[in-house]
């Protein structure tokens, strides 16, 4: 059952372990390698090592998407701060359609909507999301489906 994904998971865990440890003597590092191997073994045995856990096909375009998302988050943070300070909230609830094929893509889209302050995904039904927005302009941002296109683009990065 040792495949490409489990090896990548092992090295990710080992990197995390080395990051946490800070002491690199032989005894302690070997203990770390053993515990990482145990974790990978448990993951394989629990049968949760699939695309949902480690969506490797996202990785090539992940950096560009993250930068774009950070820019969006900054803009909407400033907008939300304005709304909170000047008491101009005007909440609305509406539904949008998502165009992603896989479950991981849908989750990424829904989480990106929630991560930008001002919009929250409240319910997910197949590919129809129910979104709560703080003002109408936030709602228009989601309805313009720019983020939807970005996530679909991220998903196709095989």
């Amino acid at each position: 059952m040792i495949n490409f994904k489990s090896i990548i998971l092992f090295f990710l865990l080992l990197g995390f372990w080395l990051l946490m440890s800070g002491h690199y003597s032989i005894l302690i590092t070997s203990l770390g390698i053993i515990s990482c191997a145990l974790c990978v073994y448990l993951t394989i045995k629990a049968n949760i090592l699939d695309n949902e856990m480690l969506p490797l096909y996202f990785f090539p375009r992940l950096l560009q998407y993250t930068l774009w998302l950070i820019k969006e988050i900054l803009i909407s943070n400033i907008e939300t701060a304005k709304v909170i300070l000047f008491k101009t909230e005007d909440p609305e609830l509406f539904t949008v359609k998502s165009s992603q094929a896989s479950n991981e893509g849908k989750v990424t889209y829904a989480n990106s909507i929630t991560l930008t302050p001002g919009t929250v995904t409240t319910q997910i039904n197949e590919n129809v999301f129910e979104v709560h927005a703080l003002t109408k302009s936030f709602g228009d941002d989601v309805r313009s489906s720019q983020m939807d296109k970005m996530v679909s683009w991220l998903e196709k990065g095989k």
Binding site: I73, L74, N77, T80, A81, I84, L85, K87, E89, P91, L93, T114, L115, T116, P117, G118, T119, V120, T122, H132, L134
Partner: peptide, 29 residues
């Protein structure tokens, strides 16, 4: 500043759904 505005938002906004936006401000920016 962002955290302060977020906490004011959590205190001031009218219902849970709006307060989540303020909490999101604390968590991101």
């Amino acid at each position: 500043l962002f955290i302060l505005i977020g906490s004011i938002g959590i205190l001031r906004l009218p219902d849970v759904f709006s307060r989540i936006h303020a909490s999101g401000m604390i968590d991101t920016a």
